[in-house]
């Protein structure tokens, strides 16, 4: 499976954020997106997820499920965690498992060390715990492409290591990951893509 991004241009609010961006990612590889604020890291990830239409250029995923849209083959973890405060931690994941198509809730809870918090309403979680719950979606349902926007925000040292090992495991089993970050995630990415270079 391979993701191709060709000559991609992003225009937001009349301003060209980046233009002519091309890169490709293949199985088991990852891309680290870096660049100053406003250089289009988040916009690129949202374009890949299909939320933001491309002004020009195209995004193709080859060798995947041809019937499914790109959005259905990727996980997007943005600035928001996608956690329902009124549901318990377990219910949150159980719904995603059901809705997104199967997955082992207990295993995902354990992967992000949330197993002792399963019965607690998600509204009572700390920022870091809620972030971990949002990230647990990644291991809950298998999808080949992970789009991570500042995934380590509000995580402590231990949790960052858990995240790093989850990304490494995902790439080891043939998955792809694209992560925008200001802090090193502790994962060896095959490529680093610097957006907005020279713009300052």
């Amino acid at each position: 499976m391979q993701l191709f991004v060709e000559d991609l241009t992003c225009v937001r609010g009349g301003r060209t954020v980046f233009a002519g961006l091309s890169f490709d990612v293949s199985d088991g590889r990852g891309v680290e997106l870096t660049g100053p604020n406003g250089s289009g890291k988040s916009s690129l990830l949202r374009m890949l997820a299909g939320f933001v239409p491309a002004a020009q250029g195209q995004i193709r995923l080859e060798g995947g499920d041809d019937d499914a849209a790109l959005g259905e083959q990727c996980h997007y973890v943005g600035h928001l965690n996608g956690v329902k405060r009124a549901f318990t931690v377990y219910e949150n994941l159980a719904f995603w498992a059901d809705y997104l198509g199967g997955g082992d809730v207990m295993a995902a809870l354990e992967a992000f060390q949330l197993e002792n918090l399963g019965g607690i309403p998600a509204g009572l979680l700390s920022a870091g715990q809620a972030r971990r719950l949002g990230l647990a979606r990644l291991t809950l349902v298998h999808r080949p492409l992970w789009l991570l926007d500042e995934p380590s925000v509000s995580l402590d040292e231990g949790s960052r290591k858990i995240l790093a090992s989850a990304i490494r495991d995902h790439m080891k089993t043939g998955g792809m990951a694209i992560a925008a970050t200001h802090m090193p995630l502790g994962v060896a990415f095959a490529q680093t893509l610097k957006l907005g270079a020279g713009r300052g």
């Binding site: 959005g71 990727c74 943005g78 329902k84 405060r85 809705y99 949002g134 979606r137």
Partner: peptide, 11 residues
Amino acid sequence: DGTLEVIALGP
């Protein structure tokens, strides 16, 4: 809370 984004990436 961002759940709409995840729902949009569903089936």
